[in-house]
Design a protein around this nucleic acid. Structure first.
Ligand SMILES: [Zn+2]
Ligand SMILES: [Zn+2]
Ligand SMILES: [Zn+2]
Ligand SMILES: [Zn+2]
Lengths: 130, 130
DNA sequence: CCCTCGAACGTTATACTATAACCCATGTCC
DNA sequence: GGACATGGGTTATAGTATAACGTTCGAGGG
C-alpha cells in the first residue's frame, strides 16, 4: 500500500457514490499530486485486484467494496435519483446465476449484476427532489 | 421502421457477436451511407426502446434480442475467447434479483446481468484456439 | 392549397472513458 | 555492483458517447 493507493482508496471510501476515474484524477491533482489518467487507472486496477474496489460497468465508475474480506463480483442496487449504490451480499444470487450458466455448459469467471431503480428514500420522497 | 433502422438491425442480427457502435458506423459507411456517430446511437436507442436490441454494458456493445416479443432486461453469457454471447431466458434469475432488491426497499427498473467466462466450445477446446 | 408541426436523419464539434508506449526512480537479491 | 521487479510520471492516442443545430419530408388542419 503506497501513499497514492491509500489516497485513491480513501477518496472512494469517502464518497458514498460511485466515482469516475476522472473525478479521482481531479481530486488528486487538486491535492497537489501531478497525475495523469494512467496513474489513476493503474491504481484502480490494483485496488480491484486487491478486492477493495468494484467497477460499475453500467456507470463507468468505481465504488468501495463493503466485504473486502474475500474476492467476489459485486451485486449492486443503483439509485437513479440520488446515485447512491448499495452492494448486496450477493453469494446466493451469484450462485443461482452461475448455476444457470453451468447448466448451459458455460464456465463462469466473472459476474456483473447491476440493478438500477429507486432507493427506499427516493422512492418514497416522490418526484420532488432530484 | 425506416431503411436505416432495418439496415442496423440486420447488421446486428447477422453478427453473432456483439457489435460496437463504431463497427456499425463503419459498416454503414462502407455501404454507401454517409453516417456519423449520432446517427448510429440514435438508431440503437430506438432499437433498444423497441426491445429488439440489448446493450452489453461490460463490452460497450450491442446484440440482437432473442425474445423480442416482450420488453425485458437481458441476461448474458459472454465468452472471453470466441466472444459469442448467449442470451438466457432470464425471468427466473431476474425475479430472484429483483425480489432481493425489493427486500431492501429498492424499486428496480432495469437489471443488468452479464456473466463472462468460457462457452462450452472454448472451454473444451483448451487454450489452443483464440 | 398553404401552413405548421414533428420525426428522422445529417453535420459539426466536443465531452468522456481508457490504454499504449516509454521513461526513470527505488528497492531487493545475488 | 548488476540484474531484475515494482511504482508511477509523461506524452500521445484510441475508443465511446452526446450536444446542438440544420434540413427534409410527410401528416393533418385551416
Ligand atoms: Zn464487494
Ligand atoms: Zn436514491
Ligand atoms: Zn432479450
Ligand atoms: Zn467461446
Amino acid at each position: 500500500m503506497t501513499r497514492l493507493r491509500e489516497q485513491v482508496l480513501s477518496l472512494i471510501w469517502q464518497s458514498h457514490r460511485p466515482l469516475g476515474a476522472y473525478d479521482i484524477l481531479d481530486s488528486l491533482n487538486a491535492d497537489g499530486r501531478k497525475a495523469a489518467p494512467p496513474t489513476v487507472y493503474r491504481t484502480l486496477d490494483f485496488l480491484q485486484r486487491m478486492g477493495l474496489v468494484h467497477r460499475i460497468a453500467s456507470l463507468n465508475a468505481f465504488v468501495g467494496c463493503t466485504q473486502p474480506s474475500h474476492h467476489h463480483s459485486g451485486c449492486f442496487l443503483i439509485c437513479e435519483t440520488c446515485h447512491n449504490v448499495l452492494e448486496l451480499p450477493s453469494s446466493s444470487i451469484r450462485n443461482a446465476i452461475e448455476g444457470e450458466a453451468r447448466k448451459q455448459g458455460f464456465a463462469p469467471r466473472e459476474t456483473v449484476v447491476e440493478v438500477t431503480g429507486l432507493c427506499p428514500a427516493c422512492k418514497d420522497d416522490g418526484p420532488t427532489n432530484e
